[in-house]
Design a protein around this nucleic acid. Structure first.
Length: 463
RNA sequence: CGGAGUGUAGCUCAGCCUGGUAGAGCACUGUCUUCGGGAGGCAGGGGCCGCAGGUUCGAAUCCUGCCACUCCGACCA
C-alpha cells in the first residue's frame, strides 16, 4: 500500500482500547422528540446526550456526560489556578442551618424539603452559603488563615414551577459554587475581582464569549454582583451593551491572581463598557453610548459573582480574630458557574442546521474517524493505525466503524458535532491521502494520514 | 399556581368524532442488492392504546376521577 511505511506504528495506550462507534452507546435520533422547543434541547436529545427522567431532571448519557466532565475539568483547573480550594459538600442539608440564617422560610416553594424517617427536616440544597459558613466557623478562627476561598461542584435542586429548555433550566443542575472568606472589605473586593478574572479565562477556554453584566443581587443579597451572559437569540434575559465589550478578549495574558491591582485592572477594563441585563438597565446611561455601538440582544446566564459582606457571617457567628485580637465577622462572597447549563448554552451559541459544533475546549471526542468502507481491509487498517497514532499523542478520537453508508456516518458526525473529521476511503488511500474536514467551516483537504494526525495534535496542543 | 394542550411501538405520528381482532414511516432482526452526504427489495420481532373506575354483548374510541408531560403567563443559576 502506498504510504504505509511512513505511517505511525499502531500502539495500545494506557487509556484502553479503541472507542469504536459500533461498540459505543450513542442513541442518536433521526427525528426530533416532540417535547423539545429550543435548539440546544433538540440537539442534545437527537445526539443521544441526555434522557429526560422527569420534568427538569435528566440522565446524562455517555456523550453528554463526556461534555459535562470536560466542562467540569476546565472549571476545576481554572479555580485551582486562581488559588481556590476544592471540597465537596452534600446535596442534602439539615433545615436547622437554614433556620439559622433565616432563609428556610424565605426561600419558598423552590426549595425541595424532605423529611427523614426520624421526622427531621432536610432539604435538597439549592446553594451552600449556610453550610460553608458552618464549616468555616467550626475550623477557622484567625485572620492569619485568610484569605480563603473554598468551592465545590455539586448537584443542586431548585423546584422550578416550570422547568423548560432542557438542561438550561432543569430542576436538578450541576453547579460550581465557591465562597471567599476575607478579613475586611478591601480583601473581599479583591476576591471578587479575582473571580471575575478567573471566570473570563474559564469561559474563553470553553469557546464562549460570556459578558460580565452588572446584576441585581437577588435572594443571595449583597452590594456588588455581576452576571456572565452568553449572547444567544434563545436567551431568557434581554441585555443591553456597548459593542466595545465584545471586542475584548482575555487571550493568553498572565495575570497574577494574588496581585490586587492586576486583577482590578482587568475588572476595570471589562466593566468600563456599558453592559447590563434588563434588571439593571438604565436607559439614560445607555443613551450615552455612541449609537453605532449600542446593542440590544438576548443572553443566557452562565454564571454570577456576588460580594455580600457579613450577611451570613454575622447571623451565623462566623468570626475571626483580627490583628488587634478583636472578633470580627468575616467578609464573604459567593460565585457560581452553571456547569450543566453551560452544555446547553454552548450549543445555543455554536450549532448549524446539521447539528452541534463543539468548540475544541469542550468537545466530547477530539475528532471523528469515518471509515467509508467498513470491512475493507485497506480502510480498516488505515483507520486503526490513525486511531492508535492519535491515542499515542494523548488524543481521544471516536472511530465510526459501523456498517453504514457514508452519508449516514457523515450525518451522525455532523449531528454530534466533533470539530474535526478524518475520512478514510479507498479513493484517497489509492493516492495515499485521507480527508481532513472542519466541522465549523465545512472545508476539507486531502492530506497524508500523518499530516492529518499532526494537524489535529497541533490544534489540541496546550488545551 | 392561572390559562391551553398532549398521553397509542425506541422516535415521529395516524386511528377516537361515528365502539366491533391495534396501524404507518423511521429505528431493530434476518437476507439480497447497494455502497463518498441519513439507499432499495423480501421476510420478521416488538404495544396492559398513561392509570383507575364506569357505561356497553363488546372500549384505544363514550363518561368520571387521577397521574404524567408540553406550551403561554407570573418566577428563575
Amino acid at each position: 500500500m502506498p504510504g504505509r511505511a511512513s505511517w505511525p506504528t499502531p500502539r495500545e495506550t494506557a487509556q484502553g482500547g479503541v472507542m469504536r462507534l459500533s461498540r459505543y452507546f450513542l442513541p442518536v435520533l433521526k427525528e426530533t422528540p416532540a417535547e423539545a422547543q429550543i435548539v440546544s434541547h433538540r440537539l442534545m436529545l437527537r445526539a443521544g446526550m441526555i434522557r429526560q427522567q422527569a420534568a427538569g431532571i435528566y440522565s446524562w448519557l455517555p456523550l453528554g456526560y463526556k461534555v459535562l466532565r470536560r466542562i467540569e475539568a476546565i472549571v476545576h483547573e481554572e479555580q485551582e489556578r486562581a488559588g481556590h480550594i476544592p471540597l465537596l459538600m452534600p446535596t442534602l442539608q439539615p433545615a436547622d442551618l437554614w433556620r439559622e440564617s433565616g432563609r428556610y422560610d424565605d426561600y419558598g416553594e423552590e426549595m425541595l424539603r424532605i423529611t427523614d424517617r426520624h421526622k427531621r427536616d432536610l432539604l435538597y440544597g439549592p446553594t451552600n452559603e449556610e453550610m460553608i459558613t458552618d464549616i468555616f466557623r467550626a475550623h477557622v478562627g484567625s485572620y492569619k488563615d485568610l484569605p480563603l476561598t473554598l468551592y465545590h461542584i455539586q448537584w443542586k435542586f431548585r423546584d422550578e414551577i416550570r422547568p423548560r429548555f432542557g438542561v438550561m433550566r432543569g430542576r436538578e443542575f450541576l453547579m460550581k459554587d465557591g465562597y471567599n472568606f476575607d478579613v475586611d472589605r478591601d480583601a473581599a473586593v479583591h476576591a471578587y475581582n479575582r473571580h471575575m478574572v478567573s471566570y473570563l479565562r474559564t469561559y474563553e477556554r470553553m469557546g464562549l464569549q460570556a459578558i460580565p453584566m452588572r446584576a441585581d443581587t437577588g435572594p443571595i443579597g449583597g452590594d456588588l454582583s455581576h452576571e456572565f451572559l452568553v449572547l444567544a437569540d434563545t436567551g431568557e434575559s434581554e441585555v443591553f451593551y456597548d459593542s466595545a465589550i465584545t471586542d475584548l478578549a482575555f487571550g493568553e495574558r498572565a495575570v497574577d491572581f494574588h496581585d490586587p491591582q492586576a486583577c482590578a485592572d482587568v475588572v476595570a477594563e471589562w466593566t468600563a463598557p456599558y453592559a447590563r441585563t434588563d434588571e439593571t438597565h438604565d436607559a439614560a446611561v445607555f443613551a450615552e453610548v455612541p449609537e453605532a455601538r449600542r446593542r440590544t440582544r438576548r443572553g443566557i446566564e452562565v454564571g454570577q459573582i456576588f460580594n455580600f459582606g457579613t450577611k451570613y457571617s454575622e447571623p451565623m457567628g462566623a468570626t475571626v480574630s483580627n490583628a488587634q485580637g478583636k472578633q470580627v465577622p468575616v467578609h464573604m462572597g459567593s460565585h457560581g458557574i452553571g456547569v450543566s447549563r453551560l452544555v446547553g448554552a454552548i450549543i445555543e451559541a455554536s450549532h448549524d442546521e446539521a447539528g452541534i459544533i463543539w468548540p475544541e475546549g469542550v468537545t466530547p471526542f477530539h475528532c471523528g474517524i469515518v471509515n467509508i468502507k467498513s470491512g475493507d481491509s485497506e480502510t480498516d487498517g488505515a483507520c486503526e493505525r490513525i486511531y492508535a497514532a492519535l491515542r499515542a499523542k494523548g488524543l481521544d478520537p471516536l472511530y465510526d466503524d459501523r456498517e453504514e453508508r457514508a452519508g449516514a456516518k457523515f450525518a451522525t458526525m455532523d449531528l454530534i458535532g466533533l470539530p474535526w473529521r478524518i475520512t478514510v476511503g479507498p479513493r484517497g488511500l489509492k493516492v495515499g491521502t485521507v480527508e481532513l474536514t472542519s466541522r465549523r467551516t465545512g472545508e476539507s483537504e486531502e492530506v497524508s494520514p500523518e499530516a492529518a494526525i499532526d494537524r489535529i495534535a497541533a490544534i489540541y496542543s496546550g488545551r
